[in-house]
Protein backbone atom coordinates (compact mmCIF):
# COMPACT_ATOMS: atom_id res chain seq x y z
CA UNK A 1 0.00 0.00 0.00
CA UNK A 2 2.67 2.51 1.01
CA UNK A 3 4.63 2.16 -2.14
CA UNK A 4 5.04 5.57 -3.78
CA UNK A 5 6.65 8.45 -1.94
CA UNK A 6 4.49 11.52 -1.51
CA UNK A 7 6.85 13.66 0.59
CA UNK A 8 10.64 13.51 0.61
CA UNK A 9 12.60 15.68 3.06
CA UNK A 10 16.38 15.75 2.73
CA UNK A 11 18.89 17.58 4.95
CA UNK A 12 16.26 20.17 5.78
CA UNK A 13 17.47 23.15 7.75
CA UNK A 14 15.25 26.04 8.70
CA UNK A 15 16.63 29.14 10.34
CA UNK A 16 14.64 32.14 11.46
CA UNK A 17 16.29 35.53 11.70
CA UNK A 18 15.96 36.90 15.23
CA UNK A 19 17.35 40.34 15.77
CA UNK A 20 20.90 40.23 14.42
CA UNK A 21 21.36 36.51 14.77
CA UNK A 22 19.52 33.44 13.64
CA UNK A 23 17.54 30.74 15.32
CA UNK A 24 17.74 27.24 13.96
CA UNK A 25 14.30 25.69 14.23
CA UNK A 26 15.03 22.61 12.09
CA UNK A 27 18.52 21.26 12.00
CA UNK A 28 18.97 18.50 9.42
CA UNK A 29 15.76 16.55 8.91
CA UNK A 30 15.60 13.48 6.68
CA UNK A 31 12.19 11.91 6.22
CA UNK A 32 10.03 10.29 3.60
CA UNK A 33 6.30 9.75 3.66
CA UNK A 34 4.55 7.22 1.44
CA UNK A 35 1.07 7.42 0.01
CA UNK A 36 -1.63 6.46 2.51
CA UNK A 37 0.42 6.99 5.65
CA UNK A 38 -1.16 8.04 8.94
CA UNK A 39 1.87 9.59 10.53
CA UNK A 40 2.53 12.09 13.27
CA UNK A 41 5.33 14.46 14.05
CA UNK A 42 5.53 14.38 17.79
CA UNK A 43 7.55 16.44 20.20
CA UNK A 44 7.40 19.05 22.93
CA UNK A 45 6.22 22.56 22.29
CA UNK A 46 8.80 24.61 20.36
CA UNK A 47 10.53 21.57 18.90
CA UNK A 48 9.77 22.60 15.32
CA UNK A 49 6.66 20.54 14.41
CA UNK A 50 4.68 23.42 12.97
CA UNK A 51 7.69 24.68 11.08
CA UNK A 52 8.17 21.31 9.42
CA UNK A 53 4.49 20.96 8.60
CA UNK A 54 4.35 24.45 7.10
CA UNK A 55 7.30 23.71 4.85
CA UNK A 56 5.73 20.47 3.67
CA UNK A 57 2.55 22.45 3.08
CA UNK A 58 4.46 25.01 0.91
CA UNK A 59 3.47 27.78 3.28
CA UNK A 60 7.08 28.32 4.20
CA UNK A 61 10.39 27.67 2.43
CA UNK A 62 13.45 25.69 3.54
CA UNK A 63 16.66 27.54 4.34
CA UNK A 64 18.75 24.59 3.22
CA UNK A 65 18.09 21.07 1.97
CA UNK A 66 15.27 19.90 -0.21
CA UNK A 67 11.62 19.12 0.30
CA UNK A 68 9.81 17.44 -2.53
CA UNK A 69 6.04 17.13 -2.31
CA UNK A 70 4.16 15.27 -5.03
CA UNK A 71 7.15 15.62 -7.28
CA UNK A 72 7.48 19.39 -6.75
CA UNK A 73 10.47 20.90 -5.00
CA UNK A 74 9.13 23.44 -2.50
CA UNK A 75 12.20 25.65 -2.76
CA UNK A 76 11.76 26.19 -6.45
CA UNK A 77 8.08 27.05 -6.38
CA UNK A 78 6.98 30.65 -6.73
CA UNK A 79 3.89 31.99 -4.96
CA UNK A 80 1.61 31.01 -7.78
CA UNK A 81 2.93 27.50 -8.13
CA UNK A 82 2.82 26.93 -4.38
CA UNK A 83 -0.78 28.15 -4.32
CA UNK A 84 -1.60 25.78 -7.16
CA UNK A 85 -0.03 22.85 -5.34
CA UNK A 86 -2.09 23.56 -2.24
CA UNK A 87 -5.22 24.17 -4.26
CA UNK A 88 -5.05 20.87 -6.10
CA UNK A 89 -3.48 18.43 -3.71
CA UNK A 90 -3.53 19.50 -0.08
CA UNK A 91 -5.94 19.95 2.77
CA UNK A 92 -5.18 21.76 6.02
CA UNK A 93 -6.66 21.30 9.46
CA UNK A 94 -5.83 23.89 12.08
CA UNK A 95 -5.85 23.86 15.82
CA UNK A 96 -8.25 26.81 15.85
CA UNK A 97 -10.59 25.35 13.19
CA UNK A 98 -10.61 28.65 11.26
CA UNK A 99 -14.14 28.37 10.02
CA UNK A 100 -15.57 31.45 8.38
CA UNK A 101 -18.27 32.68 10.75
CA UNK A 102 -20.56 34.31 8.22
CA UNK A 103 -20.94 31.21 6.10
CA UNK A 104 -23.01 28.11 6.74
CA UNK A 105 -21.45 24.70 7.31
CA UNK A 106 -22.27 23.83 3.71
CA UNK A 107 -20.59 26.98 2.41
CA UNK A 108 -17.53 26.51 4.59
CA UNK A 109 -17.05 23.05 3.17
CA UNK A 110 -17.73 24.25 -0.36
CA UNK A 111 -15.14 27.02 -0.06
CA UNK A 112 -12.03 25.12 -1.32
CA UNK A 113 -13.96 23.99 -4.40
CA UNK A 114 -14.59 27.54 -5.55
CA UNK A 115 -11.07 27.84 -6.92
CA UNK A 116 -11.36 24.56 -8.83
CA UNK A 117 -13.14 24.34 -12.12
CA UNK A 118 -16.03 22.08 -11.24
CA UNK A 119 -19.62 22.06 -12.39
CA UNK A 120 -22.31 22.98 -9.89
CA UNK A 121 -23.44 19.36 -9.74
CA UNK A 122 -19.92 18.09 -9.09
CA UNK A 123 -19.45 20.66 -6.37
CA UNK A 124 -22.71 19.74 -4.73
CA UNK A 125 -21.91 16.05 -4.78
CA UNK A 126 -18.46 16.59 -3.30
CA UNK A 127 -19.79 18.77 -0.51
CA UNK A 128 -22.62 16.36 0.31
CA UNK A 129 -20.23 13.40 0.32
CA UNK A 130 -17.83 15.17 2.60
CA UNK A 131 -20.59 16.23 4.98
CA UNK A 132 -21.83 12.65 5.07
CA UNK A 133 -18.39 11.23 5.90
CA UNK A 134 -18.22 13.55 8.86
CA UNK A 135 -21.85 13.07 9.89
CA UNK A 136 -22.75 16.71 9.36
CA UNK A 137 -25.56 16.43 6.85
CA UNK A 138 -28.18 17.63 9.32
CA UNK A 139 -26.04 20.61 10.32
CA UNK A 140 -25.29 21.89 6.86
CA UNK A 141 -27.45 25.00 7.19
CA UNK A 142 -26.04 25.97 10.60
CA UNK A 143 -23.49 28.68 11.20
CA UNK A 144 -20.23 27.82 13.05
CA UNK A 145 -21.36 29.81 16.08
CA UNK A 146 -24.24 27.35 16.54
CA UNK A 147 -21.92 24.32 16.66
CA UNK A 148 -19.90 22.70 19.42
CA UNK A 149 -16.09 22.58 19.28
CA UNK A 150 -16.10 18.98 18.10
CA UNK A 151 -18.60 19.76 15.38
CA UNK A 152 -16.54 22.74 14.27
CA UNK A 153 -13.43 20.59 13.89
CA UNK A 154 -15.47 18.06 11.95
CA UNK A 155 -16.51 20.85 9.59
CA UNK A 156 -12.85 21.79 9.25
CA UNK A 157 -12.00 18.18 8.40
CA UNK A 158 -14.86 18.05 5.91
CA UNK A 159 -13.45 21.22 4.36
CA UNK A 160 -9.98 19.67 4.16
CA UNK A 161 -11.38 16.47 2.64
CA UNK A 162 -13.90 17.89 0.19
CA UNK A 163 -11.56 17.93 -2.78
CA UNK A 164 -10.19 14.50 -1.86
CA UNK A 165 -6.62 15.72 -1.55
CA UNK A 166 -3.67 13.37 -1.64
CA UNK A 167 -2.22 14.95 1.46
CA UNK A 168 -3.84 16.31 4.63
CA UNK A 169 -1.74 18.28 7.09
CA UNK A 170 -3.21 18.63 10.56
CA UNK A 171 -1.51 20.87 13.11
CA UNK A 172 -2.61 20.08 16.66
CA UNK A 173 -6.14 19.25 15.54
CA UNK A 174 -7.29 18.17 18.99
CA UNK A 175 -5.81 20.95 21.08
CA UNK A 176 -9.16 22.65 21.50
CA UNK A 177 -11.22 19.49 21.92
CA UNK A 178 -12.21 17.30 24.86
CA UNK A 179 -11.20 13.63 24.79
CA UNK A 180 -14.51 12.29 23.51
CA UNK A 181 -14.48 14.64 20.55
CA UNK A 182 -10.79 13.99 19.99
CA UNK A 183 -11.40 10.27 19.69
CA UNK A 184 -14.36 10.82 17.47
CA UNK A 185 -12.53 12.95 14.93
CA UNK A 186 -9.50 10.68 14.96
CA UNK A 187 -11.66 7.66 14.24
CA UNK A 188 -13.21 9.60 11.39
CA UNK A 189 -9.81 10.51 9.97
CA UNK A 190 -8.64 6.95 10.38
CA UNK A 191 -11.59 5.77 8.31
CA UNK A 192 -10.99 8.40 5.65
CA UNK A 193 -7.37 7.30 5.51
CA UNK A 194 -8.46 3.71 4.94
CA UNK A 195 -11.28 4.42 2.50
CA UNK A 196 -9.72 7.17 0.39
CA UNK A 197 -6.00 6.36 0.72
CA UNK A 198 -5.43 9.95 1.85
CA UNK A 199 -2.06 10.59 3.46
CA UNK A 200 -2.34 12.27 6.87
CA UNK A 201 0.55 14.01 8.59
CA UNK A 202 -0.13 15.33 12.06
CA UNK A 203 1.84 17.66 14.24
CA UNK A 204 0.90 16.98 17.82
CA UNK A 205 1.99 16.43 21.37
CA UNK A 206 -1.40 15.03 22.41
CA UNK A 207 -1.43 11.41 23.62
CA UNK A 208 -4.97 10.96 22.36
CA UNK A 209 -3.69 11.56 18.84
CA UNK A 210 -0.50 9.59 19.30
CA UNK A 211 -2.55 6.48 20.18
CA UNK A 212 -4.03 6.44 16.67
CA UNK A 213 -0.82 7.02 14.72
CA UNK A 214 0.62 4.29 12.51
CA UNK A 215 3.98 6.03 12.56
CA UNK A 216 5.43 8.27 15.21
CA UNK A 217 8.27 10.63 14.35
CA UNK A 218 9.76 12.26 17.40
CA UNK A 219 11.59 15.51 16.92
CA UNK A 220 13.58 17.27 19.56
CA UNK A 221 15.58 20.47 19.11
CA UNK A 222 14.99 20.45 15.37
CA UNK A 223 16.21 16.91 14.85
CA UNK A 224 14.50 13.56 14.37
CA UNK A 225 15.33 11.55 17.46
CA UNK A 226 13.08 8.55 16.79
CA UNK A 227 10.99 7.25 13.92
CA UNK A 228 8.83 4.26 14.82
CA UNK A 229 6.32 2.36 12.77
CA UNK A 230 3.61 1.12 15.10
CA UNK A 231 2.05 -2.19 14.33
CA UNK A 232 -0.93 -3.57 16.14
Amino acid sequence: MENSEIVTVKDLIKRYPIGKGEFTALNGIDLTFGTGEFAGIVGPSGSGKTTLLNIIGSLDIPTEGSVVVLGKSIRELNHKQAALLRRKHMGFIFQTFNLLPVYTVYENVEFPLLLLKLSAAEKKKAVMDSLEWLGLTDKMKSRPAQLSGGECQRVAIARAMVKKPELVLADEPTANLDSENSHHILQTMENLNKDLQTTFIFATHDDKVIKYLKRKILIEDGKVSADDVITN
Binding site: G57, L59, H79, K80, A83, L84, L85, R86, R87, K88, M90, F92, F94, N98, L100, F111, P112, L115
Partner: peptide
Protein backbone atom coordinates in the same frame (compact mmCIF):
# COMPACT_ATOMS: atom_id res chain seq x y z
CA UNK B 1 -5.22 32.13 6.32
CA UNK B 2 -7.84 29.69 5.12
CA UNK B 3 -7.90 31.22 1.68
CA UNK B 4 -4.13 30.91 1.44
CA UNK B 5 -4.33 27.33 2.66
CA UNK B 6 -6.87 26.31 0.08
CA UNK B 7 -4.50 27.62 -2.55
CA UNK B 8 -5.77 31.09 -3.34
CA UNK B 9 -3.00 33.43 -4.42
CA UNK B 10 -2.06 36.34 -2.22
CA UNK B 11 -2.54 38.82 -5.03
Amino acid sequence: GVRLAIGEEKG
